[in-house]
């Protein structure tokens, strides 16, 4: 259970980090809470780790242009307790306490979890649900990728080998919005077997905006577009949330594994979507 040998760089600027990544078989070290176990079990080995912890500009939460911008190296525990996140991105604030255990969140970073792209992780799902934008820096400059194009497969993303994620921007929903996170895990803090995140914004009794995203149901987190279209534009009082939840899982084909069968994930997933929607609508002020 000891990692294979590697060289270590601790750059202090993004430019230095990109330079360090361009040589060898190098890998970014963010919080290390997923990477180091993979290395300890020798599932991964690298010539060099480039530790981003010493780059101050990569940490912190700010309100920018209608978004909550979170530096990629912001620790999950810091984002969890940041009033800017609580006010501007309540869904993220609700998702964060479900990430690992608190000792993990003390080291784990927001960007690290999103780039790791575990299909049962909360933060990639929150990014997808909120239509976040991921900012990526590389030798040729900075590019911005929408969350909908970012997650390509299990632990596969749009980030290239010689690039780093510098920040994630989560759009702020306006007044009248409500959010909820529901998940089923064997033990609090363990990876979820299945989970759902919902957001609604209600204007004059009508759903003006909605988002339903699920995790633990495939190789990437998924948005449930058909179910969202049943919500958006409808009056809240007439909604059949059970039918919306069934529509959310209708096209899913979750995997069977040791923890649960695909059929079980679908059944539980539908219940979680319904529960999350009910809570989100209640929070939006229209119980």
């Amino acid at each position: 259970m000891k990692p294979a040998p590697f060289e270590y760089s601790a750059p202090t600027t993004v430019a230095e980090a990109i330079e360090a990544l361009s040589h060898d078989d190098a890998k970014v070290l963010a919080g290390g809470q997923s990477l180091i176990p993979l290395m300890a079990m020798r599932l991964s080995r690298f010539d060099r780790l480039v530790d981003l912890r010493r780059i101050p500009e990569l940490s912190g939460c700010t309100r920018v242009n209608g978004t909550v911008r979170i530096g990629a190296m912001t620790r999950q525990a810091d984002a969890e307790h940041d009033p800017i996140v609580a006010e501007g991105a309540p869904l993220l604030a609700k998702a964060l306490p479900n990430v690992g255990h608190y000792q993990i969140r003390n080291q784990g970073t927001v960007g690290g979890s999103i780039v790791h792209a575990d299909p049962s992780a909360e933060l990639p799902t929150a990014a997808l649900a909120l239509d976040a934008t991921i900012e990526i820096a590389g030798a040729s400059g900075v590019r911005r990728v929408p969350a909908s194009e970012f997650f390509l497969g299990t632990m596969e993303t749009a980030v290239g080998d010689h690039e780093i994620v510098t920040a994630i921007e989560f759009p702020v929903w306006g007044p009248g919005s409500g959010f909820a996170v529901e998940e089923m895990a064997r033990r609090h803090g363990d990876f979820a077997v299945v989970g759902a995140m919902c957001g609604v914004r209600i204007e004059g009794g009508t759903v003006a905006q909605s988002a339903i995203a699920m995790f633990g149901v495939g190789s990437v987190p998924v948005r449930c577009g058909a179910a969202e279209s049943m919500l958006t534009g409808s009056t809240v009082d007439g909604l059949d949330l059970g039918a919306v939840a069934q529509a959310a899982v209708a096209d899913l084909d979750p995997p069977d594994d040791l923890h649960a069968s695909g059929a079980y994930r679908r059944a539980v997933g539908a219940a979680l979507v319904e529960r999350a929607l009910r809570a989100a609508i209640e929070e939006a002020g229209h119980a």
């Binding site: 259970m1 180091i36 530790d51 003390n106």
Partner: peptide
């Protein structure tokens, strides 16, 4: 014990925060 961040046996305080010392390299 587990050496991959599951069991919590190696929990210590780093800069005032509880962390798993098996999930941090000494160079960090």
């Amino acid at each position: 014990a587990c050496e991959h961040g599951v069991c919590g046996s190696c929990t210590i305080s780093v800069d005032g925060r509880a962390v798993r010392s098996c999930l941090m390299f000494a160079v960090q």
